[in-house]
Design a protein around this nucleic acid. Structure first.
Ligand SMILES: [Mn+2]
Ligand SMILES: [Mn+2]
Ligand SMILES: [Zn+2]
Ligand SMILES: [Zn+2]
Lengths: 135, 135
DNA sequence: GCAAGTCTTTAGAATGCTTCTAAGGTTCTT
DNA sequence: AAGAACCTTAGAAGCATTCTAAAGACTTGC
């Protein structure tokens, strides 16, 4: 590579995924700017606009693979409304119910204390805090 | 009414809903015992077992109406996985990702402190804490 | 570089959950 | 009891997501 763009080929390979044209194009849209909250549909629209057509099935495949590889996390806010989040650090969300928008806020400010022990035989996976607001 | 069962006719009417046979049968299954987490499908199976057949469309209609009336709350834990919760008091949830079970825990024990102010022009609706665990 | 092997993409079909349609039935009001 | 309003229902439709299987792309060893 002779330019200064991040080498998604390397990170995809490190995640155990072949760096195909489609996955590289999707990774660029997802990870080149700041943090993003995308749906499969919105990402599909964006990547098509880059003149690298990718099928919707491939967008779903890639999002699920990226999530399974730890490159993304999934946030479910409402039935049939799932966002993929490029911010994989500790943080929580505002969800604006009236228009479907999702905003981050750092978990550093928030204290979630006094959680009971997980049910017998289970191990903690993640604590999601979703603050639902309306306009 | 001559027996000692709760009069769902009254609570349904208070919620602005006609106490039809179907809604009363559903209310009985939902509210007669302790708190419940049901899906449309699971409730449909239960009410059919009471020999009062109700269509699945009616179960969906009733769950949405009960929720809109504040008799139930909806908890979305995963894409395509929505529970209706008869516990409408303040509490939070353990979600066992590996088998789809949902358990309550009281919010009294839990402190969620330091939440940032809601985005401009929005009002707080609810704070959901979902503690995800795996077996 | 080339072939073989493996993995990926894709269009379109299928799925699963939820909502809609519109026709017939129930409940409420007078 | 009659009219009006509302409710239930089967089946169709909708929507997000996954599956199928055939064609294409990437990788490895030569
Ligand atoms: Mn998914
Ligand atoms: Mn619903
Ligand atoms: Zn986020
Ligand atoms: Zn609950």
């Amino acid at each position: 590579m002779s330019d200064n763009s991040p080498d998604f080929t390397v990170s995809l390979r490190a995640a155990g995924l072949r760096p195909t044209r489609q996955r590289v194009a999707l990774a660029r849209v997802l990870f080149e700017g700041g943090h993003r909250h995308v749906t499969a549909e919105s990402l599909h629209a964006e990547v098509k606009a880059t003149r690298m057509p990718v099928s919707l099935a491939t967008v779903y495949n890639a999002l699920n693979q990226f999530r399974d590889a730890g490159l993304l996390r999934e946030v479910v806010v409402a039935p049939g409304r799932s966002y993929f989040d490029t911010n994989i650090g500790h943080h929580h969300h505002f969800y604006v119910e009236t228009d479907g928008e999702l905003y981050d806020f750092p978990s550093a400010d928030v204290v979630v204390a006094g959680l009971p022990a997980p049910p017998e035989g289970t191990r903690l996976s993640r604590v999601d805090v979703i603050v639902r607001v309306r306009r």
